[in-house]
Simulated scan of single mutants.
Amino acid sequence: MNLKKQFQEYTPCNAQEEKDREIILRYMDTFDNLLTRENEFAHFTASAWLVNKERTKVLMAYHNIYNSWSWVGGHADGEENLLYVAIKEAKEETGLVNVEPVSSDIYSIEILGVPAHEKRGQHVATHVHLNVTYLLEADEDELTQIKPDENSDIAWMEIDEAVEASTEPEMKVVYRKLNEKLRVYQAR
């Protein structure tokens, strides 16, 4: 299923997702380069809420640019299959070999503001990430490995502890939402 159709069929869980979905669909009709960083204003990213098999913990990485514990993920860089991107990035950023989707469906959507920063010696202007999150699963006993150019630590955390470990107020809101969805998902 193409990305636009996935967004059209996605059922938002709250007002934030409803508004972000509306804006993302509008951007998809306006821009033809949202899958690449060529669009310096807005482009797609894919993130993973990477949980253990019991779904009681999430794997977080200490992100070097933001100096905060955060989820894993990255830019689409031309790839329309954002689930593939989320899995690839989760593996690259954690060293895990076995990462599986709990579902192939979009788990969450958000438009995330990214402040200006330096990356690999280059200035990156303020922009937004049109982010799609997937619920992924891994064995917490599998060996992890940091990716020094992106993170300086990796740790499994209780799901509520993961929210508190983040120093980014706007991301705490997102992580709380993901945990609320996880609790509903577990109750099914």
Rank of each mutant, 00 (worst) to 15 (best):
N14A: 08
A15H: 05
E17Y: 08
E17F: 07
I23C: 02
L25C: 04
L25I: 10
Y27F: 10
D29K: 14
T30R: 12
F31P: 02
F31G: 01
F31M: 06
F31I: 00
D32A: 06
L34T: 10
T36R: 11
R37V: 07
E40C: 02
F41W: 08
H43C: 12
T45E: 12
T45D: 09
T45G: 09
A48M: 11
W49I: 12
N52G: 04
K53Y: 07
K53P: 00
E54S: 15
R55M: 15
K57P: 00
L59S: 00
M60L: 10
Y62G: 01
H63N: 14
N64C: 13
N67T: 03
S68K: 08
S68C: 11
W69S: 05
V72R: 00
G73Y: 04
G74S: 07
H75S: 10
D77K: 13
D77S: 12
G78C: 04
L82W: 04
L83Q: 02
L83Y: 06
L83S: 04
A86W: 00
A86Y: 08
I87P: 05
E89W: 04
K91Y: 03
K91E: 12
E92I: 12
G95F: 02
L96Y: 01
V97K: 13
V97T: 11
N98R: 14
V99N: 09
V99A: 11
V99Q: 07
E100N: 10
S103P: 10
D105K: 15
D105E: 14
I106F: 08
Y107T: 04
Y107E: 03
S108G: 12
I111R: 10
G113T: 14
V114G: 01
P115W: 05
P115D: 13
H117R: 15
E118S: 08
K119T: 04
R120K: 11
R120F: 13
H129I: 02
N131H: 06
L135G: 03
L135H: 02
L136N: 00
L136S: 00
A138L: 05
A138D: 00
E140Y: 14
D141C: 06
D141Y: 13
E142K: 07
L143R: 14
T144V: 14
I146D: 09
D149H: 14
N151E: 05
N151A: 07
A155Q: 09
W156H: 00
M157H: 03
E158D: 14
